[in-house]
Design a protein around this nucleic acid. Sequence first.
DNA 1: ATGAAAGCGCTAACAA
DNA 2: TTGTTAGCGCTTTCAT
Lengths: 350, 350
Amino acid sequence: MAEQPKQGQPRPIPPRRPLTLRDVSEKSGVSEMTVSRVLRNRGDVSEPTRQKVLLAARELGYVPNRIAGALASQRVNLVGVVIPSLSNQVFPEVLQGISDVLEESGLQPVIGVTRYSQAREEEVLYEMLSWRPSGIIVAGLEHSEASRAMLAAAGIPVVEIMDVNGTPVDSMVGISHDLAGRRMAEAILKAGYRRIGFLGTKMPDDHRARKRMEGFEAALRDAGLAVQARDFYDGGSALQKGREMTAALLKSHPDLDFIYCSNDMIGAGGLLHCLEQGMDVPGEIGLAGFNAIDLIQGLPRRLATMDSCRREIGRRAAEIITAARSGKALSRQVIELEPAILPGDTIRRA
Amino acid sequence: MAEQPKQGQPRPIPPRRPLTLRDVSEKSGVSEMTVSRVLRNRGDVSEPTRQKVLLAARELGYVPNRIAGALASQRVNLVGVVIPSLSNQVFPEVLQGISDVLEESGLQPVIGVTRYSQAREEEVLYEMLSWRPSGIIVAGLEHSEASRAMLAAAGIPVVEIMDVNGTPVDSMVGISHDLAGRRMAEAILKAGYRRIGFLGTKMPDDHRARKRMEGFEAALRDAGLAVQARDFYDGGSALQKGREMTAALLKSHPDLDFIYCSNDMIGAGGLLHCLEQGMDVPGEIGLAGFNAIDLIQGLPRRLATMDSCRREIGRRAAEIITAARSGKALSRQVIELEPAILPGDTIRRA
DNA sequence: ATGAAAGCGCTAACAA
DNA sequence: TTGTTAGCGCTTTCAT
């Protein structure tokens, strides 16, 4: 049963058992404990010993086993991040903000995707909490009872992000989507538009889009007006849907003078349609979206939109986690950011 | 030192120690071992016992500790996925394919982002391997020596994806970007275009974009032609950059009759520019991109492009991992997918 | 069908 | 500065 290096054979995956600290200890002639100290830069180790250990570890190709480490130390450098989708353009940017901050603290984001389903969210949270992360960042304030219970009982910082219209389990960082809708409505009314349509997503669980719409309608009501026409989409290319829905809306309601879209992609599609029809934008018809995504920079007109502060939200949320971890026992923070209106070229200047 | 609920104070993080199997065991009056069996659906447990345990676990809000479980069982339901970026539209779709397949097998993807840096990739891989995942999926074939060594020594299935122009550490699933560039060049030449320009990304480490360009140029050379003009971009809105770079390219080389872009966003920007200038697309000038992203469905013309098979690549890669895990000891698979040309409306019909 | 004992690979706490 | 000991919370294995 002696090991027999077969030369000339394509090297198979090494059947070796994974290396342990003990292997490094034996190879370097230093105790496991000291090896552990060197590998974690902890405690005082003499420079010669340090070098011996480092060399042995490198030569063996040792990769520490964090599972054992985490169990022994009761510390995990993981932060759970739970978001509805990765294909939404918006969430990767939040993630960017999060990982920018976490990286500095040696924390690692672990991403879970819920597909806008509370049931799936519950599963994802359960799965994440079972790894005993140092904190959880989760999009939105609407969760199942079980999810809220898990989060509250986890004994770690929990930050709910993107939205502040509701009651958080622990901390929250976001914008008021109700206010965002209202503000946009006010800007539109101030610019003189009166016959207003709405295009949105059908997603029954996109609570933030819903809140924007509700805020928008509330502001119109305050001015004695109402949305004249609306339509909702579900799936497919948002740009194409924006085109089609705008075309349909203007056909059934030719007198509309503004269309408020629940996101920039829909708005961009609408804008392309209107321009191709030779309509005067923003004179004859105005348009607005939401999010301020990068894309709108390249459109024929800069679509009016609102900054959703995604990156900043990510940064702030991550900072709450890192602060809590380094002992600054605060928690229960509530941070409301101010979404700015970017009027672009698709709303008449007042 | 009695606990003293301070009312009116913001509730601090619950100081309770996390629950363990023992807590469930005590509450249910069943041994830890049997509790463990129930919670994992393993072995034979009588129905009454089962119910007792489940009830106790639910009432306590017990979440198992996977760290301990993984250490004891030497099994981890994690699969590392290492990609260059999340903001590229393309990678989230690969991820979608991956998680569709993994989900069925109870495996969980863990995402790492390299920002197109090999040094960062090395760190990310080290970090991931330290969690002893059941497999690793990594984008691209170009890695540092240390990364390749780590992957080879990890003793788990490794799948390199997106590209097949190179030698994998273990398995690979992707398309030939060299071939993709060639095929597009051939289609363009066949349609009668001769004065061809190129717009790409500056990213020095986007090897796949580079290989496409090289294949493209090789095919032109075979036809006795060469790229007449080229430009590269870096950062910012790709749509806007596509616009600007196309404008600049056509200004300095007004006789170009085709522009091949290294991705659809650049191509879309170019298309919008050309149409706004009143140019005849595809008669006067043709355009093509790469990836077949959703967005192009909503453009004024369907941009010519090539399907990069992202979803399928993700699925196949994940299947290799799940197959290896369920004992079907294969490994070392090489799967080359065929990228189809989608001529759209921006290449003249032959 | 259920339980008891051993130990996964590492680190905290203490000893030398 | 270095080493020893005793677990971390669970699962494997074997006994009952």
